[in-house]
Computed example of a mutant assay.
Amino acid sequence: MSKKKTGGWLESVKTIVYAALIAIGIRTVAFEPFNIPSGSMIPTLLVGDYLFVSKYSYGYSRHSMPFSPNLFSGRIWGTTPERGDVAVFKLPRDTSQDYIKRIIGLPGDIVQVRRGILHLNGQPLRRESLGPFVAEGDGPRMTVQQYREFLPGGRSFLIIEQSDDGPLDNTPEFRVPDGHVFAMGDNRDNSLDSRVPSAVGMIPIENLVGRAEFIFFSVDGSARWWEVWGWPFAIRYSRLLSAVR
């Protein structure tokens, strides 16, 4: 009887260990979940969104693994991201922190913002006004302007602006060095990104964790964890399983 109990206990431990190893493997090579704690990517991503990031999109670096062990440098099967990708990366000055922004500049590009208009390699990017947008979930609720911005090649996405004369609406020229990318938040006046060298600056491609693919869950924060009766009403059903563009 004692042997049976011991055997049963060992089998349970083995099952747990195998399950943990499989989960770590999937998280390392395939998909990793992330949640959005701030509003720097509004309107594309909202506070309370939960999304999956594909780890294979740009190849693998030490940051693809939990705790970023210093096992090797560079990327294995690495590819350069495309302009417009929404990517998770390790903050260059503190790799324990994950940031998510949109890739705007690639190695060799010159990026500048003038009066709120993004310029890439000396050319202003076209943007179309879509009217007012109510931004909430990250500080006071406010009405801002929403635009559709177009990258070279026609890829487009939504951004919001409080004004075209804020601290981040007029910048010097930034030349993206080899092995780096330049990223910005879609909430252009409320994002610490590559426009702020002391906070983020240029992002080494090695620091890229993966590309944001789709939102699998989203809550608006109206129900606290113990308010079980409010959970169904706090879910943003329209955002479930929506692609990140």
Rank of each mutant, 00 (worst) to 15 (best):
N170F: 08
T79R: 14
F133M: 04
V196W: 07
L51C: 13
T6N: 12
R83N: 10
V181Q: 04
G84W: 04
F34A: 02
F157W: 13
D193N: 08
I16C: 04
V176R: 03
S54I: 00
R236V: 01
S238K: 12
R114D: 10
G166C: 09
P37R: 07
L241I: 07
W229D: 14
R211V: 03
S73K: 14
R27V: 01
G59S: 07
R175C: 02
V176M: 02
I160N: 02
S191I: 00
S163V: 05
V196N: 13
I160R: 02
F67Y: 15
W77H: 08
R195W: 00
G179C: 08
G7Q: 02
G153K: 09
R141A: 14
G201T: 06
D193S: 09
H63A: 07
L71W: 15
A135F: 11
I22M: 05
Q112P: 03
R239T: 01
A30W: 15
N35Q: 12
A243E: 14
S40A: 09
A243C: 03
E161F: 05
S2K: 13
P69M: 13
W226V: 06
M1E: 14
S218E: 05
E136W: 11
G78N: 04
P92F: 08
E128K: 14
P69H: 09
F150H: 13
L118E: 09
L106V: 10
E213R: 14
G230F: 10
I100T: 06
L91I: 07
T44I: 03
V17G: 01
V134K: 13
G201C: 10
D165Q: 13
P107L: 04
G116I: 00
E173M: 07
F233R: 13
G179Q: 10
F133G: 04
G154V: 03
D220T: 03
R62T: 11
I76K: 12
M142H: 13
P232S: 02
H119N: 15
T6W: 14
V244I: 15
S73E: 14
F216Q: 12
Q112M: 13
S156G: 05
P232L: 06
F89V: 05
H119P: 04
G105P: 12
S64K: 12
S194K: 00
Y99L: 07
L46S: 09
H63I: 02
L71E: 09
V200S: 04
V88G: 02
K14W: 14
I42D: 15
N35A: 05
L46G: 01
A199P: 00
I104P: 01
P107K: 03
A199L: 13
R127I: 05
I24V: 15
R62A: 10
W231L: 04
V111Y: 03
F133Y: 15
D49I: 00
G59K: 03
R148S: 07
G131Q: 06
I160E: 06
G108M: 05
I16L: 11
G48D: 11
